[in-house]
Design a protein around this nucleic acid. Structure first.
Length: 581
RNA sequence: GCCGAAGUGGCGCAAUGGGUAGCGCAGGCGAUUUGUAAUCGCCCGGUUGCGGGUUCGAGUCCCGCCUUCGGCUCCA
């Protein structure tokens, strides 16, 4: 009985993946004797290792590397742990420049090594006991990665591998990758006619088609209604503003690289807005504010433009022009806890409404090294406030030490997509900077001028990103309340067309989104197309239905409900399209 | 921005070692009037991302640029 079997699964996988990384490094060294090694850690689904190689790897190299790895696993040699002095280590890794750099950073004067066969790596471990304990794996891809994640350092070649304890789990994972491709919102966006990009006229700029716009409008209507219910006021602000505004806000100092070049208006420089905050502040400052009217919550579906580096654009999930579901809350210190908590509850309502179960909460705290606005007491208070709000809701969270922006700490919430990637959507941020910069005040009970607290928050993040994640989440099969076309009426022959239109009219009058498929096609073809369009309800009408004042109801799932009276169909769809509480 | 790969009609793909750019779907027209995932026929549609170069001849080779994809860094 090996020690390995007694460990928790997570720990076993950690060791297996880490060991596979070593075995891969050995194989690569065999194929490229001069290769320089970076680092090779385990990750959630397997492992990777970074290499500095004399030539770019091609996908054809992976099977050869895999082959060598399998031989090593079959040979079942032991992993041996050693500790040597740094001096010796420097000699051992004399031609491994990256390892030398790592050795220099290790504290103390001894370093840990792991050896298997003739291969030895600088490594803290732990590993499996023998190479034969490495379970099924598969090398997936080659990609570039900066040494130490620093874009000023050399670009290494990273090989990713998947590794699971059993062949079944590995295959399940590979299936999931395929499934993710099937759900890719870029593909579904085209197939379902939701949106498009026109790269020749500007990458990263979204064109919303009628169907995509319908889904978006449904979400926006829902969003507005819920905001009004929670004491937010809706505002609209300009898309451009004079340079002086961005100077005061600090954007020209801290955010210029994400802003587009200014345009000239009557000899003045105007910038396209990358954020809405300075505008909302102007609304706050448009008159003297009393402590009695706080909190003031100003919300806007605000369209912003940011320069994103070309390599980062990704469908709807990362674009250059997008609409944030933004709001700024200006409040007194004694109100801020309640406001933050309300934001979290609000967020949970949205996640519930859209069926998101999986998300991760991050609390980003002050970067003690860097510059920051506000006093240490302010920060401690703000961080405590955020922490308490998250904990009170029983949300599991991770602390991102030093992850805060210079103006304040924040809570970020990331939705997890179909292949486990995380997308930041919700954000709730304290701001100690802008109220100061814009000299915002309110008149307190004692007549003194006080500085309000400011909270930035977005619930969905941006309409673009949220829709992208949502499309993948539902694989394009939106629930009835969101579906761009909720029902399609399918006449069997031309003579049923008038009745089909009557049916559609009835549904329209009930505010349902319905279309009649009046093409000269066979019913089967119409059903197929409706299926591919993921329309929730197919209402088929022929002689029998016209006679009975009913419709034959087919669901997207393929289920046939038989012929139902039209009234019943209308009430059924109306009830179902009312969003779940 | 960086590393790698790729770019052929709206979409998905073909085009042996450079030798006249094809197919399916979609679209148009016509026939068919059909009972739960594709009716048949005909037709239209591309200066092969853009700009240079090599060659008698370039979708195929070379250079530059643009864009996309997979990552890295960054982010709503």
């Amino acid at each position: 009985m090996s020690e390995l079997a007694g460990l928790p699964k997570e720990e076993r996988l950690y060791r297996m993946r880490h060991s596979a990384a070593h075995i891969m490094a050995e194989a690569v060294l065999k194929l490229f004797p001069g290769a320089k090694l970076g680092i090779g850690p385990p990750i959630d689904t397997g492992f990777y290792y970074d290499f500095d190689l004399p030539r770019p790897l091609t996908p054809d190299d992976l099977p050869r590397i895999e082959e060598l790895m399998r031989e090593r696993v079959a040979s079942d040699v032991p992993f041996i742990h050693e500790e040597i002095s740094k001096e010796e280590a420097r000699r051992l890794f004399a031609d491994q420049t990256y390892k030398l750099e790592l050795i220099d950073e290790i504290e103390g004067d001894r370093v840990s090594l792991y050896r298997h066969g003739d291969f030895v790596d600088l490594c803290q471990g732990p590993h499996v006991e023998r190479t034969g304990q490495v379970p099924p794996f598969k090398l997936l891809s080659v990609a570039g990665a900066y040494w130490r994640g620093d874009e000023r350092r050399p670009m290494l070649q990273r090989i990713y591998g998947a590794l699971f304890e059993t062949q079944e789990e590995l295959e399940e994972y590979l299936r999931r990758l395929e499934e993710a491709q099937r759900r890719d919102h870029r593909r579904l966006g085209r197939e379902l006619d939701l949106f498009s990009f026109h790269e020749e006229y500007g990458p990263g700029l979204v064109y919303w088609h009628p169907k995509g716009a319908r889904v978006r409008a449904v979400i926006e209507d829902f969003w507005r209604r819920e905001h009004f219910r929670r004491g937010y006021e809706l505002v609209y602000t300009p898309h451009i503003g004079r340079a002086t505004l961005w100077q005061i806000s600090g954007h020209l100092d801290f955010y210029a690289e994400n802003m587009y070049s200014p345009m000239d208006v009557d000899g003045q420089a105007y910038y396209l807005k990358p954020m809405n905050c300075p505008f909302h502040i102007q609304i706050y400052k448009s008159r003297v504010r009393s402590y009695r009217e706080l909190p003031i919550r100003l919300a806007e579906l605000g369209t912003v433009y940011r320069y994103e580096r070309s390599g980062v654009l990704h469908g709807l999930l990362r674009v250059r022009g997008f609409t944030q579901d933004d709001a700024h809350i200006f409040c007194r210190p004694d109100q801020v806890q309640e406001e933050i908590e309300a934001c979290l509850d609000f967020m949970l309502l949205f996640f519930e409404a859209f069926g998101f179960r999986e998300f991760r909460v991050y609390l980003s705290t002050r970067d003690a090294e860097g510059k920051y606005a506000g006093s240490l007491e302010d920060w401690q208070m703000a961080e405590a406030t955020l922490r308490r709000a998250v904990e009170d809701r029983g949300l599991a969270y991770q602390v991102d030490e030093g992850g805060a922006v210079f103006y304040g700490p924040k809570i970020d919430v990331k939705l997890v997509d179909a292949i486990g990637r995380e997308w930041q959507c919700t954000t709730v941020q304290f701001d100690f900077n802008l109220p100061e910069r814009f000299d915002m005040t309110y008149v307190a009970a004692d007549g003194s001028r006080q500085r309000p607290y400011m909270v930035h928050r977005a619930m969905l993040g941006s309409m673009e990103r949220f829709l992208g994640v949502l499309i993948e989440h539902y694989a394009g099969a939106f629930p009835l309340w969101l579906a761009p076309v909720q029902a399609v009426v399918i006449p069997i022959a031309d003579r049923h067309l008038p009745y089909a239109r009557q049916v559609a009219q009835r549904l329209k009058e009930a505010d349902l989104r319905v279309e009649v498929d009046d093409r000269q096609e066979r019913m089967q073809a119409k059903i197929r197309d409706a299926q591919l369009q993921k329309v929730p309800y197919m209402l088929i009408v022929g002689d029998r239905e016209a006679q009975a004042a009913g419709v034959a109801v087919r669901l997207r799932s393929g289920e046939d409900l038989g012929t139902l009276p039209l009234d019943e169909v209308v009430s059924r769809l109306t009830a179902e399209s009312r969003r779940a509480p």
